[in-house]
Simulated assay, not measured.
Amino acid sequence: MAPKKKGPAKRLAAGRPPVLQRSKSISRSATKALINKHHLLQKRKRQAIAKGNKVEEAAIEVEIKALGGIEGYQEASLQGQRHDRGGDSSRVLMKWLEPCLSSHGANSGRRLRMLEVGALSTQNACSKSGHFDIERIDLNSQGDGILQQDFMERPLPQDESEQFDIISLSLVLNYVPEPKDRGEMLRRTVQFLRAPERYLDSPHLLASFSSLFLVLPAPCLTNSRYLDEERLVAIMKAVGYAKVESKSTQRLVYYLWRRDRVCKGTESTFSKKEVRSGPTRNNFAVVLN
């Protein structure tokens, strides 16, 4: 009798989410379709919860799990970060910051502190630049070096040593379920950034720090019923930010916002107000109460 073939040796990593075991590459269109489907199902799930429809909520949850759950969504996001897909949004950030960071590096041994919210990788352009000490967090950590944590539940800094020079929110805000929670997330980022006065003795940093790097799917601004760039700039100004840089592509919009003043909780309110009409518009919105 022929000896039985032994299966592959079991490893601890086998019990981790499948994103750690790299799947075969899928096409750009399939990646986009998977991400869009996740967003649609999450929206339907929120609506079912709001109506108290437990049967519909359970059915939608089955659909989400069939797509691979949050792990499947993150795998698709990682696929989208590949260089041949135009991925890694932090390359845009590094291009914007490189001139001032080079001057800073030549005159200071202190690296800047970055908080990367929704981190998927420890090997992006910011990580490899050597300019930052980076703390990475995500709701569902997919690897070493990324802390599993909800930014909205992260303890507020007690002093400047716990604050950051820059925060990255790359394709994070669009995954926050409710418009008011998106506004609250933007408002909360200010409390994690060092005061502008911190950079008065570093003129090469003053123009760009402390700052927030924000990346959104382009349709959130270009085809939203409730948000365009003019309204986003007004909302960010109310929160306490000034626009430093921006870039748009067919798929994404990129922004660098500098903390302009201390957030005192007296900003203007921004409700869910229509800025474009038409049946083909999406409902992405940011609300400040």
Rank of each mutant, 00 (worst) to 15 (best):
R110N: 11
Y254S: 04
S208P: 02
V286I: 15
N36P: 00
E71N: 07
Q42L: 07
H38N: 10
L139V: 00
K10A: 15
A242D: 13
K247Y: 10
I70R: 03
S127P: 00
E162T: 06
A119T: 03
L173E: 05
V244I: 08
L40T: 10
L227C: 09
S246C: 08
S271V: 10
L252M: 13
A218T: 13
N223D: 12
A238L: 04
V239M: 02
G52L: 10
A58W: 06
N289Y: 12
A30H: 13
G86Q: 06
P8C: 13
S202R: 09
E245P: 01
G105L: 08
V275P: 06
N174M: 04
L139T: 00
Q148W: 03
E98M: 11
E63P: 03
N283H: 15
L205N: 05
E71I: 02
L200C: 12
S127H: 07
K51S: 12
E75Q: 11
Q21L: 14
G118E: 00
G105D: 08
M152I: 04
Q148I: 03
D159L: 07
E71L: 01
C126F: 01
Q81V: 04
M1I: 11
A207S: 13
A125V: 03
R16D: 10
R110F: 06
S271N: 14
P219C: 14
K180V: 11
S23G: 14
H83Q: 09
I60G: 03
I35F: 03
Q47L: 08
R91V: 12
D150P: 03
V117M: 04
Q148R: 10
R231M: 12
Q79F: 12
R113G: 02
L169M: 11
T122K: 00
H39Q: 11
E229W: 12
R136V: 01
Q191L: 13
Q191W: 07
N283V: 11
Q149I: 01
L212I: 07
R225P: 02
Q250D: 14
V239C: 06
N36V: 04
S211H: 05
L252H: 09
T249N: 07
S246W: 03
R46A: 15
L120M: 05
N107A: 13
E267W: 06
S224D: 08
V233I: 10
Q163D: 07
D84F: 14
G69Q: 02
E57T: 09
Q81P: 00
Y226A: 11
S208L: 08
F151P: 06
N174W: 03
K95Y: 05
P179A: 09
K264I: 14
E98H: 08
P219Q: 13
S161H: 10
S27I: 12
L112N: 02
D144V: 05
Y175D: 06
R11K: 14
H83I: 10
D84W: 13
S25D: 15
E178A: 09
L101C: 04
V172L: 05
E230Q: 15
D144P: 02
